[in-house]
Simulated scan of single mutants.
Amino acid sequence: MIRLENLTKTFDTPNGTVVAADKVNMEVPSGEICILLGPSGCGKTTALKMINRLIPPSSGKIFINGEDTSGLNDIELRRKIGYVIQQIGLFPNMTIEENICVVPRLLGWDLKRARARAAELLALVGLEPRLFLKRYPKELSGGQQQRVGVIRALAADPPVMLMDEPFGAIDPINREIIQDEFLKMQATLKKTIMFVSHDIDEAVKMGDKIAIFRAGKIEQYDAPDRILAHPVNAFVADFVGADRTLKRLRLITAEEVADPDAPVIARHGRAADAAAMLRNSDHRFLVVIDADHRPVGYVTAEEAEGSSGLVGDLAHPLPATVPVRADLRAVVSEMFAHDTLWLTLVDDGGRFAGVVTQPAVTRCLGETYARANAA
């Protein structure tokens, strides 16, 4: 847990005193990610750097897991905190293994334990230890180096992580991949994380909470869904964007709105059986599956009625399938791209996992608005 109480930072300039952070109060529960957002110069990076004392506070208190950090010297404090920056800062003359082991070795870990930790963390971010431990940073892509920079901060198992635009320099495709790997890792490690970003989409995807700063103050500190559904003022509404309803689609997975009991039939089944199933269903189509339960097509109620053939002879190819973990923005994008009001979901093995429809997406958004309003 991180708690900031009246955290303030002022700078004296030739033109007078500048307030970079103005009585910042917030609490990040243990195991959660808090994203700090706001325009340039709003105080978010200053607030982050005061936590590990890269910038000393002018006043206020910082608590980590209930401990007042003002009683710790800089070295003691920073041993409790992992720190990741956009520039990564890997040592070019060290192997990846040596880079990850730097802090554990400084803390007195024996070499065997430090190396085991390095291998464990590489595997967590999708980098095969056998292939990457002995490589040098220049032999890795920018995205791979960024992953190593993240796990190096985790090597000594700090309870808290601070991240200053860690994925900002990565191209969009690799950024999505690294974000996904990081969220998988966080689901396992459950660190308490404060994360500066300039990207509202990244914040919505990654944050349990979002703090929106302006002129050194927090304008709104809330769950992403509540900020998008109910911005507290015009500044927050403008900052998160006029398309904030569409951004909320990122908060919900296809699996959450799918109908897993949508009717299916084997492709060697009879059309008459398909017609009978649809008469007792709200759906106007059946998904056709193969022997491995993979969706291979669909047939409509109108086509099934009166036909004496096999379903496989009537089936149309599916316009697209989407994985169950896809967010609803991706689902809606596929619907528009293929001019359809429904899509079939598949699990990690490509097996049928349900159907998601456009009315179900709309209904879900309405329900989340109601929940956000009641919170």
Rank of each mutant, 00 (worst) to 15 (best):
I2L: 13
I2T: 10
E5D: 14
E5A: 13
L7D: 10
K9N: 05
T10E: 09
T10I: 05
F11M: 09
T13I: 10
T13D: 04
P14C: 10
N15W: 07
G16F: 11
G16L: 11
T17M: 06
V18W: 03
A20M: 06
K23N: 13
N25P: 14
N25S: 14
N25M: 11
V28D: 13
V28L: 11
G31V: 14
I33D: 07
C34W: 05
I35F: 03
L37C: 02
G38D: 05
G38V: 03
P39D: 06
S40N: 15
S40W: 08
C42P: 07
G43S: 14
K44Y: 05
T46Y: 06
I51K: 01
N52K: 00
N52W: 08
R53K: 08
L54A: 11
L54H: 09
L54G: 02
I55Q: 08
I55R: 03
P56Y: 06
S58N: 02
G60P: 03
G60C: 10
G60V: 09
I62P: 03
I62G: 01
I64G: 00
L72A: 06
I75G: 00
E76A: 10
E76P: 05
E76R: 00
R79Q: 02
K80S: 02
K80E: 05
K80C: 03
Y83C: 00
V84F: 06
I85D: 00
I88D: 08
G89Q: 02
F91C: 02
P92G: 11
P92C: 11
N93W: 07
T95M: 05
I96W: 08
I96H: 12
E97L: 14
C101H: 00
C101E: 15
V102D: 08
V103T: 13
R105N: 12
L107M: 15
L107Q: 14
W109H: 12
D110E: 09
D110L: 07
L111V: 13
K112D: 10
K112V: 14
